Computed example of a mutant assay.
Amino acid sequence: MRDRKVKNVVSMAFFAAVTFLGIQVFRIPVPAAVGTPFIHFGHVFVVLGMLLQGGKRGVASGTAGLVIFDLLNGFVQSIPQVFCETIIKCLLVGALFSILKERAKNDRKKEWKAAVLCAVVYAVLNIVIEWIMQTILLLVSGSGFAAAAAASTASIPATVVNAVFMAMIVSILYMPAARAYRKFI
């Protein structure tokens, strides 16, 4: 029992670290009307961590990795939004994957399809929640609804590029990562 707890903590620390490194080390700037977005591997590791560890541990490791990046790179104002978004996405998608994985009944092909579907759902949630949160932030800062919605919509293409990138990479990495993770746990 104790060995299992230690492995879970090590797994969560590992996914938090690679999430942080996936953003810190690999960044490609993307032009946008609002902010300075960039393509990165951070969400790839958040999703892989959530799929492999489960929603709750995925929330902890993903949120930790993203928040550590924000703290160390001057994005402190983004932490509440990142914190809330990551919790919502990981819990919802983690629950969906748990159901789909149970239905797959150790059929690796069905499990992979479930993982890909969940990566796509995470990507769509990321786009929708990002738009809603940006609109709310602009409304709170004094913009009218039309201006806030237009500015949020103008920044969505960068989010879409990042979301598509994440879903593609997760679909490629899920099976090898799942094999390695099963050996560890």
Rank of each mutant, 00 (worst) to 15 (best):
V82L: 13
A151W: 00
T63G: 10
I68D: 03
A167P: 00
Q77T: 13
S152C: 06
V160E: 02
M166V: 09
P157A: 09
Q81N: 11
I39C: 03
L100H: 04
A115K: 05
F20Q: 01
A167N: 04
L125R: 06
S61I: 08
E102I: 04
F184I: 15
G55R: 00
M12W: 04
A95T: 09
V25G: 03
P31C: 04
A32W: 05
C90V: 08
V121G: 05
M175A: 14
R4M: 10
V124W: 03
A147F: 02
I185Q: 10
A178D: 09
A32C: 09
I156L: 15
K105P: 01
G65E: 05
A177W: 00
C84A: 15
I127M: 15
N106H: 10
A180V: 10
A33Y: 03
V67Q: 01
T19L: 07
P37S: 11
L96C: 13
F165T: 12
L66S: 12
G54C: 08
Q24V: 01
I99L: 14
V10N: 05
L91K: 09
G35H: 06
A32P: 02
N73E: 06
L100A: 09
H43Q: 14
R57F: 04
M166E: 11
K105G: 07
V93N: 05
V46C: 13
A154M: 13
I68L: 15
E85C: 12
W112Y: 08
F14W: 03
F14C: 12
K105Q: 13
P37W: 00
R182S: 11
P157C: 05
A33W: 02
T135F: 04
K110C: 07
L21Y: 03
V164F: 02
I127F: 03
D70W: 04
F145R: 03
F15P: 00
T86L: 06
G58S: 11
L71M: 15
G74Q: 07
G54Q: 08
D3R: 15
L173C: 14
C84Q: 03
L173S: 08
N8R: 15
E130K: 14
S61N: 07
V76E: 12
V170R: 01
I79M: 09
R108F: 05
R179H: 10
F165L: 14
G54W: 04
I28V: 14
K101N: 12
G58Y: 01
A33N: 06
H43V: 08
L96G: 07
A154Q: 13
I68M: 11
G74W: 02
L21Q: 02
